[in-house]
Design a protein around this nucleic acid. Structure first.
Length: 109
DNA sequence: CATCTGACATAAC
DNA sequence: GGTTATGCCAGAT
């Protein structure tokens, strides 16, 4: 496939998300200033096609909901992965989302 | 080229 | 707290 700049940027940024933290599509899109949040979701879906492993489970939507769980092998895999990393997940949502939320901007501060 | 769809976001109702 | 509308942009058809 083509290797658009934003695609690699999104995956690279996703890999920067610390364990036990989560980020959002909007935050990544805003930070990269490339395209829109939909591009991030698009990249995530295609991240399984990437050669590099990407912690896609650490990327949730703006409400902290695991909107992408359906794209995993098992719908509950995403939540289990997060829980195994220390992120509390309840009813497909990240608990205390505002506390575990991570913005790429923090890397530059 | 026209439309639809999507792991989204935001505002308005 | 849903639903609707709009912006966003790459793929698929």
């Amino acid at each position: 496939m083509k290797r658009p700049h934003y695609f690699e940027q999104v995956l690279e940024t996703a890999r920067l998300i610390p364990e036990g933290r989560v980020s959002t599509y909007g935050a990544i899109a805003d930070f990269l200033a490339l395209g829109s949040a939909r591009m991030v979701g698009w990249a995530m879906k295609n991240s399984f096609n990437s050669e590099e492993l990407v912690p896609a489970h650490r990327v949730v939507n703006g409400k902290g909901e695991l909107s992408g769980r359906n794209a995993f092998e098992h719908p509950d895999l995403m939540a289990e992965l997060l829980i195994s990393e220390g992120v509390e997940v309840k009813n497909n949502k990240v608990v205390r989302f505002s506390e575990v939320f991570w913005h790429p901007r923090e890397m530059y501060e």
